[in-house]
Design a protein around this nucleic acid. Structure first.
Length: 426
RNA sequence: GUGCCCGUAGCUCAAGGGCAGAGCGCCUGACUGUGGAUCAGGAGGCUGCGGGUUCGAUCCCCGUCGGGCACCCCA
């Protein structure tokens, strides 16, 4: 029992979990680079003022880790990346060639109550396309999300990317008589539609001052799954998504509105198809943010995907790969004192040949050593005992099949490469 | 921040106001040049922590810390 507990809401990454984290990172990197995006990162510490400018009030005031540094400056552990991105771009927006396509993967902190799919320290993939404000740019971002899901083994039956547009939502709300200054209340009402029973929802609507006519209009709006067709920006968006081959993942959803204040156009969220988990990703277009933190106006669109919910959803739909946390390809057992030196020499030779080699650092029963190699999932063993040394040979055992052959020492690395090719790591 | 539920071995869980258990995992041996299977044995616990009630608390009560779920919010 540890006497010092880990910090609430943090996770220890034992090798097995770290292997999954790394797999996730590799998928993210592959997809990002496939679309030509460059990796970047911001600092983990930012001045609190940066977020006070534009993030949602609750995110800044109640959900950030905030502390004064030794000079009294108020510092926040970054709760999201977009303001840092905007700040970085504000300093260079005139010199960077556009469009700007950047992505990042790293840790974020939010002081929230931990529960399923939500921790206080988590990782996020952020990907953004800046310098253009076309519907096709929005479509590329949605397509990247779809490409990631596909690459991670999640089909359109497993996950859905739901899209709306704030300007469309604003226009719709005005058309049924809601003033724009009340739209945040209405967005909240819309957000709760699926979380409450119809009766509860209607009562909540009355409470916040929605009259019967407005309520009827709102219900019609939320039931209209085709409104995007008459809104040019979304119509072009969906056309482009279709052309880029991601149409089967992406759908219009009038209930998606997003909480962050800085979104100005297209907004999207992705959920598991059963709708049981939290949002896998969320994002949208933020055309005023860079100007708001002191730069030249620079339109942008992007999303953030969290590692916790993503892991849950991958687990749930059976897409979790079986990963080995031990990277060794070849295991070399240790026989006795006289042969120890040759075993080390062989290990060194094989490493020089580019192989990942692990040897047993103790002279003990071979059964124990092979058992260890088996538990670690190491596919091959290179056996160099007194007999083999005598004959200048090495025995190669395939631990996956149990087959063993003895060959001249000079042919060892070639045979190992051959055997490793035969059966890709399970 | 609010409400409800739960903390027993590394993991999953039993028991129950009176000696704290099982399975899996780990270690050892059967097996002195070869893993997976089987069998036998072993280690591992202040029953989350602190207080209270009691002759006696792992069990009942209170607090606290941690976890889960629903709000809130959000990745």
């Amino acid at each position: 029992m540890p006497t010092i507990l880990p910090v609430k809401g943090t996770r220890d990454f034992f090798p097995e979990e770290k292997a999954f984290q790394r797999w996730l990172y590799e998928k993210i990197r592959e997809v990002s680079e496939q679309f030509g995006y460059q990796e970047f990162d911001g600092p983990f510490l930012e001045r609190l003022d940066l977020y006070a400018a534009k993030s949602g009030d609750e995110l800044v005031q109640e959900q950030s880790f905030v502390f004064p540094d030794r000079s009294g400056e108020m510092i926040a552990l970054r709760p999201e990346l977009t303001p840092s991105l905007a700040r970085m771009l504000a300093t260079r927006s005139k010199s960077l060639p556009r469009p700007i396509r950047w992505w990042s993967y790293g840790p974020f902190w939010r002081y929230e109550r931990p529960q399923k799919g939500r921790s206080r320290e988590f990782f996020q993939w952020n990907i953004d396309l800046l310098g253009v404000d076309t519907p096709q740019a929005d479509a590329e971002i949605a397509t990247i999300a779809a490409a990631f899901f596909k690459s991670a083994g999640l089909s359109p039956n497993d996950v859905r990317i739901k899209v709306n547009n704030r300007r469309l939502a604003d226009a719709q709300l005005q058309s049924i008589g809601f003033p724009l200054d009340r739209r945040l209340n209405i967005f909240r009402l819309i957000d709760r539609r699926v979380k409450m029973s119809p009766q509860e929802w209607e009562e909540y609507a009355k409470e916040i001052g929605v009259d019967a006519t407005q309520l009827a209009g709102l219900k019609d709006l939320l039931a209209d799954r085709l409104a995007w067709r008459t809104f040019e920006e979304l119509a072009e968006f969906f056309e482009a998504v279709e052309m880029m081959g991601a149409g089967d993942y992406v759908e219009y959803d009038p209930t998606v509105v997003r909480g962050l204040d800085y979104y100005t156009g297209t907004v999207f969220e992705a959920y598991d198809a059963a709708g049981e988990e939290r949002a896998i990703l969320g994002g949208g277009r933020y055309d005023n943010l860079v100007a708001d933190v002191g730069g030249e106006p620079l339109p942008g669109v992007g999303f953030a995907l969290g590692d916790v919910v993503t892991g849950l959803v991958i687990e749930k739909y059976g897409a979790r790969p079986s990963l080995r946390s031990n990277p060794a390809e070849v295991f070399i057992p240790t026989f006795d004192q006289p042969s120890l030196g040759e075993a080390l020499r062989l290990a060194s030779e094989l490493r020089t040949a580019g192989l990942r080699v692990e040897w047993f650092p103790e002279i003990t029963r071979l059964s124990k050593q092979f058992k260890y190699a088996d538990r670690q999932g190491i596919p091959l063993a290179a056996i160099l005992g007194p007999d083999e040394i005598q004959a200048d040979q090495v025995a190669i055992k395939d631990l996956r099949t149990g087959k063993q052959v003895t060959i001249p020492r000079s042919e060892v690395s070639a045979l190992i490469r051959e055997l490793l090719k035969e059966e890709p790591k399970a």
